[in-house]
């Protein structure tokens, strides 16, 4: 069974851990070809939301629709279409860059694993260091490799948790360019970030989260001023 979708619908999503509410009644929808930004202070529920979208966490209320389906129904076939880059990078430090990518490519059961891995290493600008252990990589190199790891199976929905942390300006700019390319290829990208200057102009839509609630939703551009000015306005007024 293959599952594909172009639309993501989030309905009334909530998640609590004991008495702590991490996410409350969040609803929104987005389409393939969008780059959605999740903005908000620490503890706003961004990571929880991403975990739920990645099917790693079950919501306590509400549900997520991937096209026509929900995670309960589609299961493994749906996970084959999701890519996630977490705050922790999901890489084995003892393995080389190539081994890391190959392991995950094979885990996803990809037929042309070697070719995809070579392509990924190229994109991460790590072709020369491909056979070095990840333990010796800088944060920026790991981050680029981790992105390719999340993309190795060509996911439809890409979830990024703070992908710009530890990147220098050049790497950040190339990541931005990479995300634009993915969007043009029909990928739906959702990115949670604090680096407002970097993503200004990249996002097609902005969701502001605060204390687990969706407090505002804006188009990516326009609406008066730079992104950080709008962020200040929304977060302090809600």
């Amino acid at each position: 069974m293959t599952v594909d979708f172009t639309r993501l619908g989030v309905h009334d999503l909530g998640r609590s851990f004991g008495r702590r509410r991490a996410l409350a009644r969040v609803s929104f929808a987005c389409e393939a070809g969008e780059i959605v930004g999740l903005l908000g202070p620490n503890g706003a529920g961004k990571s929880t939301l991403l975990s739920i979208l990645a099917t790693l966490l079950k919501p306590t209320t509400g549900h997520v629709q991937y096209g026509e389906r929900t995670a309960d129904v589609a299961g493994a076939a749906l996970r084959a279409r999701l890519g996630m880059l977490g705050h922790d990078l999901y890489l084995y430090p003892e393995l080389t860059a190539r081994e890391n990518l190959l392991f995950f490519a094979r885990l996803y059961g990809l037929a042309d694993a070697e070719a995809r891995v070579a392509h990924g290493l190229e994109k991460a600008q790590l072709a020369e260091r491909a056979d070095d252990q990840v333990a010796g990589f800088s944060r920026g190199m790991r981050q680029r490799l981790a992105l390719e790891r999340a993309l190795v199976h060509g996911p439809r929905l890409l979830l990024l948790d703070e992908p710009f942390t530890g990147l220098d300006q050049a790497s950040a700019a190339s990541l931005v360019a990479r995300l634009r390319g993915l969007r043009d290829d029909g990928c739906l990208v959702i990115v949670a970030t604090h680096d407002l200057d970097v993503v200004d102009g990249l996002l097609t839509r902005v969701l502001y989260l605060r204390q687990g609630k969706l407090v505002a939703e804006e188009p990516g551009e326009g609406g008066g001023g730079a992104l950080w000015e709008r962020y200040q306005r929304v977060i302090s007024h809600s």
């Binding site: 609590s16 004991g18 008495r19 509410r21 409350a24 009644r25």
Partner: peptide
């Protein structure tokens, strides 16, 4: 009670 606390929070 937990659920009520959560609802009150909201």
């Amino acid at each position: 009670v937990e659920a009520l606390y959560l609802a009150a929070d909201e």
